[in-house]
Write a protein that binds this DNA or RNA. Structure first.
Lengths: 444, 444
DNA sequence: ACAGTTTCCCGTAAATGC
DNA sequence: TGCATTTACGGGAAACTG
């Protein structure tokens, strides 16, 4: 029966832990007072146990840090109704679903009074345990199951940082024993390992991982160490790359899901490489890249213009979440206009790099808008378009509107290697070569 | 001393009752669990009383309806700390400020169980009383002060309805005794009286009342009674005009404050009158009017175009709050473009009716944007503009894009009277005649 | 099924604490 | 004073409840 006891002790597992709104609160991040759900599965599937076990969730049970770490916050489950319990069979397994769980600040709130904590609140790792006692044949057996570590936040503004902690912890624990105090002295991670996880983030946010070129580019922003190690404080702190990456993930999830998924967004390309790539192509080639400076996530397009021997590469002021909530990027590209003299306009975006007609690449995403100039109510239809003023042709008129701005994209040119060109965007190329695309819809 | 007692009984008044966020929760509307502040003033300003009186707020004290009206909801102040008290002198008067008040559902929540109430929750009128006892020379004197009726809501979506109730009640009580059960059988209001109140709403939301033309137009939407009486149910229910008016008030407050204040928005003009007005003017005249169909508040511009003998009046699809949050209406007017063949564009908006050059009227509100085509970061600047496709010149090409849509604005023409023209917009006319306006800023 | 009503909760802004 | 953390609450949407 000692064996049985042991078996039973490992029989209860936390199946999953989606928060109620799993899109924004990614799993393992709990917001104070906001409801979440946990499902438990009892691995020993004997009908015998049905409705026999009372399971109780306990927050931070036996967690050392709660008692010893200065400033460690304390939480408890909100409702004593948290004694929801019993094991029943919906279909097949013995499971218990804890709905409407939520936590609040504990009575003491913080260990040892004030918060002279060695770590930030989003680095504090907590844990939920589910306990039950099985009485069987005069034998009393205590069974516990614990969740992966969770981070508790009080505002959605803390979610990005919290998410970094969860990710870092899980990577650490894959290769070494890692405690809930991991962030008191957080070990570094090899880029090889971190980059994998970052790529998964893009898979999760936008259904597509990062390709090798994107990873290489990202590495330049993240790795600052001869041994390719990434240090937590450099990575996740307010001026580190994570906040920037997270902004881009957000942008993808909310506004670029389709075109990211289908590989239309090169995204991580620096200005030099952008120029290299575009300069080798005919006028009108453009590509999409994320802003390198904007911390909240922004995307721009760069395009090349050739006229009488001159080659210029431009980039529009990046579009943020707010901009894109007024119009989608494909529509925006479709309608983008440069305005020259006499209010004559032209769209400089012709080919998605490399040489893919833009309507071939973006046609599937254009939003069908009202087609007729006047709609049924008698109102004149309208659409938003993004417009820039021409600066090159004609040669700048005198005056302050055409100052000696230093445009990084207009620095000295160089010829890109053919290999470099082939490396980029193989799949978009594939699309062009192998697929016959649906006809482009007439927009107006 | 009986006189003194009487005097003291009337000595306590509720000074004002701003909610903590008075912009959205207009006074007299309380949202459950959301904090608000009430200031009490003690009219008998004797230093004698300083810090001698304990004042206690009580919700719905002595309100009959709480006991008798089926479905009437019950509320209590959230914190027992609501015994905040004392009278002190900040400067001059004896006042007590109750900060951080908030209410929650009472224990019984609803009178007589279920909610078979004869009135909607936003028609339920409640009241806050402040009570204190003064012991003076062996004499015990009970003093009370009560607020104006308040409506309790649980969601901001109920605020517009609640506001209608508050307004209606206050108008009713100006001319007749009105109880908290007023909405069980709400008396009608004379248009004369209601219109006054509506005009004040516009004053409050946008610093400018309605003029006679606007009131006349509004009357057509609101009054449906030979005696010019307005009936509550027709006015305030979901398909009544109040919701529509409230949407417009919201639009003004959030997006049109300046131009409404300065009289640039004619606003309430029907399509026929719009056509009459514009047809008498030169090509390029336009005016701003609110959508008559959109319930959430929307604004459009109508303009006149003359070409070879033909006169056409058009109106763009109305702009909603969401549209205007992407760009302001003055900027939108400045940049609005009709796109003809060859991507050549023209702005059909030239004169704000009557014949005021648009930059004279709207120049002060244009947002100065980045002027140079390329800004300091090297990015090409851009702006959003609203664009429509030309439909008149040239004569419609064959095909479905130019169907026989029935445009109410293109119905048979008639000549407007000169008087009609003079009536409208006297102040804008004045402006043109009497003021030398600031120079128009160059936008790009 | 449905409408009136309430709850939920993100995301931003403001307040608070140290 | 500045930064880290928490609270407040509008607004949209889902959930409730008879």
């Amino acid at each position: 029966t000692a064996l049985l006891t042991k078996l039973l002790q490992n029989a209860l597992v936390v199946e999953k832990q989606p928060t109620m709104s799993s899109l924004t609160h990614r799993p393992c991040i709990l917001k104070l007072t906001v409801g979440f759900t946990v499902t438990l599965r009892f691995l020993v599937n004997l009908p015998l146990f049905k409705c026999l076990l009372k399971v109780k969730p306990v927050f931070d049970k036996d967690v050392e840090e709660v008692k010893t770490m200065k400033g460690f916050r304390q939480f408890v489950f909100s409702e004593n109704t948290s004694k929801l319990l019993d094991v029943c069979t919906p279909n097949g397994g013995l499971v218990a679903e804890f709905g409407h769980l939520s936590i609040k600040k504990g009575s003491k709130s913080r260990v040892n009074g004030s918060n002279e904590s060695p770590i930030g609140v989003t680095e504090e790792l907590h844990m939920i345990k589910f306990v039950t006692t099985l009485q069987l044949a005069g034998l009393e057996c205590h069974i516990e199951a614990s969740s992966l570590p969770v981070v508790v936040v009080c505002s959605t503004a803390q979610v990005p940082s919290a998410w970094a902690s969860v990710m870092w912890y899980s990577l650490l624990s894959a290769t070494q024993p890692t405690s809930l105090s991991a962030f008191v002295e957080p070990p570094p991670l090899p880029w090889e390992q971190l980059s994998q996880a970052l790529s998964w983030q893009f898979l999760s946010a936008g259904d597509r991982e990062l390709n090798q070129n994107q990873l290489d580019e990202l590495k330049l922003k993240v790795v600052d160490d001869p041994d390719d190690l990434v240090h937590w404080n450099k990575f996740a702190k307010s001026d580190g790359p994570w906040i920037w990456i997270n902004g881009i993930l957000d942008l993808i999830q909310k506004h670029l899901k389709e075109i990211w998924r289908d590989g239309c967004v090169m995204g991580f390309v620096n200005k030099d490489k952008t120029r290299q790539l575009l300069q080798s192509k005919q006028s009108g080639n453009f590509l999409l890249r994320f802003s390198e400076s904007n911390r909240e996530g922004a995307i721009t397009f760069s395009w090349v213009e050739r006229s009488n021997g001159e080659v210029n590469v431009y980039a529009v002021k990046p579009y943020t979440k707010k901009d894109l909530s007024a119009m989608s990027l494909p529509n925006l590209i479709y309608h983008y206009s440069l305005r020259a003299q006499q209010r004559k306009t032209v769209n400089p975006l012709v080919y998605l790099y490399p040489d893919i007609p833009k309507d071939t690449a973006f046609g599937p995403y254009y939003t069908k808008q009202e087609i007729s100039p006047i709609n049924k109510d008698g109102y004149v239809n309208r659409q938003l378009i993004s417009v820039s003023d021409c600066c090159t042709p004609p040669p700048s008129p005198p005056g302050e509107t055409q100052m000696d701005v230093e445009d990084p994209l207009q620095a000295p040119l160089s010829v890109p290697s053919e290999e470099l060109l082939q490396e980029w965007f193989p799949d978009v190329l594939d699309t062009t070569l192998s697929t016959s695309l649906p006809p482009i819809e007439q927009m107006f």
